[in-house]
């Protein structure tokens, strides 16, 4: 996955990712149209399919609303790279197969508009603009099993059938 970086700060919360006034609908396209609206009203207009979202500590803190990773994924973002993730957002992203990467060194390096290439399976990340390369720890086996199945429900179904 390769795309342009959109950079945000620390503690980006789910109210900023998808404000509660839009939680009366669950269709991904509707949610995507309002993605990041209260943090950056121009985000959706600037984001192109494949772009990456870059943030600081504790990305996705606050509410458990799965509408947040759904909105990001449906907005065409290919990967979220942060220093750290809030725990419910982390689970939700894994469960719906939105690629996420915790890599503080890369966050330090990436500036808005940089071209970034990520390979989550290999644990490799490249900032094509600066030429700097980074590695990050792969997920634990438990999490990789969920991703390999294509998300939590597919994982659960395969186990229920077995």
């Amino acid at each position: 996955m390769k795309g342009k970086a959109h950079v945000f700060g620390d503690d980006v919360n789910t109210d900023e990712i998808i404000p509660a006034r839009y939680l009366n609908r669950i269709d991904p396209e509707f949610l995507a149209a309002h993605c990041m609206e209260d943090a950056d009203p121009e985000f959706v207009a600037r984001a192109a399919p494949g772009d990456v979202l870059v943030a600081g500590e504790n990305f996705g803190c606050g509410s458990s609303r799965e509408h947040a990773p759904i909105a990001i994924k449906a907005a065409g973002i290919s990967c979220v790279i942060a220093r750290s993730f809030a725990r419910i957002f982390f689970r939700n992203a894994i469960n719906i197969a939105l690629p996420i990467v915790a890599c503080p060194e890369a966050v330090e390096d990436i500036r808005p508009g940089d071209q970034v290439e990520v390979d989550p399976a290999k644990g490799e990340l490249k900032n094509l603009t600066t030429g700097n390369a980074f590695t990050f720890a792969p997920f634990t086996k438990e999490i990789q099993d969920i991703i390999a199945a294509g998300g939590l429900m597919a994982f659960v179904k395969s186990r229920m059938g077995g």
Binding site: S63, S64, N95, I96, M153
Partner: peptide, 27 residues
């Protein structure tokens, strides 16, 4: 397990209570 982040409230009773998202709840 609750699909609401404030599910952790019920830990006050001496329980383990934690919030998750909708897909976790479905599972």
């Amino acid at each position: 397990i609750g699909a609401d982040s404030h599910t952790c409230t019920c830990g006050a009773l001496g329980a383990f209570a934690t919030g998750v998202g909708s897909t976790d709840l479905a599972a």
